[in-house]
Computed example of a mutant assay.
Amino acid sequence: MAGGAARIDHVVTSGTFSLDGGTWDVDNNVWIVGDDTEAVVIDAAHDADAIEAALGGRALRAILCTHAHNDHVDAAPALAARTGAPILLHPDDLPLWKMTHPDRAPDGELADGQEITVAGVTLRVLHTPGHAPGAVCFHVPALDTVFSGDTLFQGGPGATGRSFSDFPTIVESIRERLLTLPGETVVRTGHGDVTSVGAEAPHLDEWIARGH
Rank of each mutant, 00 (worst) to 15 (best):
P102G: 01
A76F: 10
P91W: 02
P77H: 07
R82I: 06
H127S: 15
A78M: 08
D92F: 09
L110Q: 08
W97L: 00
T66P: 06
E115Y: 13
A81Q: 13
T117D: 10
V41N: 02
L123S: 14
P86W: 04
L60H: 03
A85L: 08
A48N: 05
G57T: 11
C65R: 01
R61L: 15
K98E: 13
A119V: 12
L60W: 04
M99S: 09
A75K: 04
D49E: 15
R58P: 03
H90R: 03
A111H: 15
V121S: 05
A53K: 14
P106C: 03
H90A: 10
D93F: 06
D74K: 07
L60I: 10
A105S: 12
H127Q: 12
A50H: 07
D92A: 15
A48C: 11
D43W: 00
R61K: 15
P102H: 05
A50S: 14
R61T: 13
L89R: 02
G120A: 14
D112N: 15
G57N: 11
L110W: 03
D47N: 12
H67E: 15
A75V: 12
P91V: 11
I51F: 12
L96R: 10
P102K: 04
I116L: 15
W97G: 00
I42W: 02
T83A: 02
H90F: 01
V118K: 09
V121C: 10
I63C: 06
A45R: 01
A81E: 13
L110Y: 06
G113E: 10
L60F: 05
V73N: 07
W97A: 00
G56M: 09
H127I: 12
H101P: 00
D103V: 04
A105P: 01
H90T: 04
A62E: 03
L60E: 03
A80N: 04
T66Y: 09
T100K: 02
G113F: 06
T83G: 00
P95Q: 10
A105N: 09
G56S: 11
A111F: 10
N70C: 12
T128S: 11
G120T: 12
